[in-house]
């Protein structure tokens, strides 16, 4: 596969390490009342779509960016590649 890195252009997927569902960005608030339940859902409950899937890839042998790659799990077609940092900020994450 080829991943179109937002900063570096098209790169072979061999340069990357796969992590999984990009929902890992949405880490719950540790002080919430039901924090344990929220963390349980965050960590263990994942969708397994046949189709479009947003997932985290790490450019390990490249610039060490974490990317959010939108990939169709049935065709491997990649429709979007974003810096995970930008996605995280857009999801309200800061420090």
């Amino acid at each position: 596969m080829i991943i179109n890195h937002p900063l570096l252009g098209p790169r072979d997927s061999q340069e990357f390490t796969y992590l999984g569902d990009a929902s890992l960005i949405d880490r719950p608030d540790w002080q919430a009342e039901n924090a344990v339940d929220q963390f349980h859902d965050y960590l263990y409950l994942r969708d397994n779509p046949a189709g479009s899937h947003r997932e985290l890839w790490f450019h390990e042998t490249g610039d060490r960016s974490w990317l959010v790659v939108t990939r169709d799990t049935t065709t491997h077609e990649i429709t979007a590649v974003e810096l995970a940092r930008d996605v995280a900020r857009a999801r309200g994450r800061s420090k």
Binding site: L56, F58, E60, R93, K95
Partner: peptide, 19 residues
């Protein structure tokens, strides 16, 4: 060593991007 580094970058870029 490799896995920890990857994890640290994950925490930084995906969870605490403004640190």
């Amino acid at each position: 060593a490799v896995g920890v580094y990857r994890h640290l970058e994950f925490v930084h870029q995906c969870l605490c991007p403004d640190m």
